[in-house]
Design a protein around this nucleic acid. Structure first.
Lengths: 219, 219
DNA sequence: TCTCATATTGACTATTTAGTCGAATTGACT
DNA sequence: AGTCAATTCGACTAAATAGTCAATATGAGA
């Protein structure tokens, strides 16, 4: 008699489930990197994932749920990327610069990630809200220049705008020989730091260990 | 006998044609302002325009052609907006600032235009190419700062990124109390001008006569 | 090898969308 | 009022897409 422990049963299933679910999310990311999120169909996804249509609906209620899952994964990667800087850096300008550089490094290392991240912010603004809010707080803590004319709200849009455009460009293969520090400097100057201050912030930025595994090379 | 001059016949038709075609383009713009270009269907358009489906295909081969027509109209409005500055201003920084301010003024006056313009650049990069190219040329003509680290290619993405984000924000109703000059200053500082230089450029910017008719108010 | 809970499959129906076409409407002119 | 070329209409077919479900496959443990 094969009366297996039901808890064990569920465990076995979870592995298989997780693998298939992962394939679907991977397929979605691959498609989102190539075309508009709104133009991707369930049939596209299952074809790309090499999975039957019914399977899709076992894992997700519909495209919206899949999109949310991709967004969730992105937010996860954002948080992991930004966490180290948030805890260790006390200077808001330095925190902003660190966050931006982390994004750029990731985008330089994995252009698919860049393309997906850029597309998802437009499609599901919900996911990016936390990152926006934290950036906004950092911008508010920035020492205000003499006669401050640039509101924190505007600075927020400026930083987000530059970063998104860089992500889009890298995602499309443009700007592949990008100078990270030049971008950070431009952002810092845009939000009111002087050229010298900006340069100084960039120089004080802690060096990050270069990643070993390259996703871009693997694909 | 009603044997009308065939040339006259065609003339009569053209008016009716033009009106219907205009309704379709208007409907498309209205939809593009609300949702992703890729998610708009022919049925959406004809419903919004209050026109039968068959009529749509009399005027356009398909959605792509309609989208191209909307893009064409946008490019037209860009050119009209940017032309005065291009011919009268010799300082590249001034030309860039003027162009950006023209965009912002238009967006401030007509948030639908802003939303559509932002969405269309992503959907049909073809249309924006000329504007991009002209901006790039202006950026190249900019006097190079001491040890130039920011390439013209990067500056291009920075300016475009900021402008697109401002357009998106205004299109979504955010930043409605926007300080035009603050945006221009931020852009100029980002591309390498000092804070004082940027301020000076903004002050030297010729004043434009405020528009009488407000599209935003009319809708 | 057999069992069986779980996961996967793909054919199926229902709905949405693209695109067509003959019939009806329009409106300036006679 | 009548004419007629141009335009518009909307029902129609074909194709694409969403979502369902009974049948099949999987694989660890007995």
């Amino acid at each position: 008699m094969a009366n297996i422990n039901p808890t064990r049963r569920a465990e076995i299933g979870r592995e298989k489930r997780a693998r298939t679910r992962g394939q679907l999310v991977e397929a979605a990311k691959s498609l989102f990197a190539r075309q508009a999120v709104e133009s991707v169909t369930v049939d596209d996804v299952v074809r790309e994932a090499g999975v039957a249509k019914g399977t899709f609906y076992v894992h997700f209620d519909g495209l919206e749920a899949l999109t949310a899952a991709v967004a969730e994964e992105l937010v996860q990667s954002f948080d992991e990327m930004l966490q180290p800087g948030r805890v260790s850096l006390s200077d808001p300008a330095l925190r902003i610069a660190f966050g931006c550089r982390s994004f750029i490094d990731k985008a330089l290392d994995d252009s698919q990630w860049a393309a997906v991240a850029a597309r998802m912010t437009a499609a599901t603004p919900k996911g990016g809200e936390n990152i926006r809010r934290r950036l906004f707080e950092d911008l508010q803590q920035l020492p205000t220049e003499s006669p401050e004319e640039t509101s924190a709200e505007l600075k927020l849009e400026v930083v987000v705008g530059i970063m998104l455009q860089i992500l889009r460009a890298l995602g499309e293969g443009r700007l592949s020989s990008l100078d990270r520090d030049a971008v950070i400097s431009a952002i810092l100057r845009a939000i009111g730091l002087g050229a010298q201050e900006a340069k100084s912030v960039v120089e004080r930025l802690p060096t990050t260990v270069p990643e070993k595994s390259s996703r871009a090379a693997a694909n």
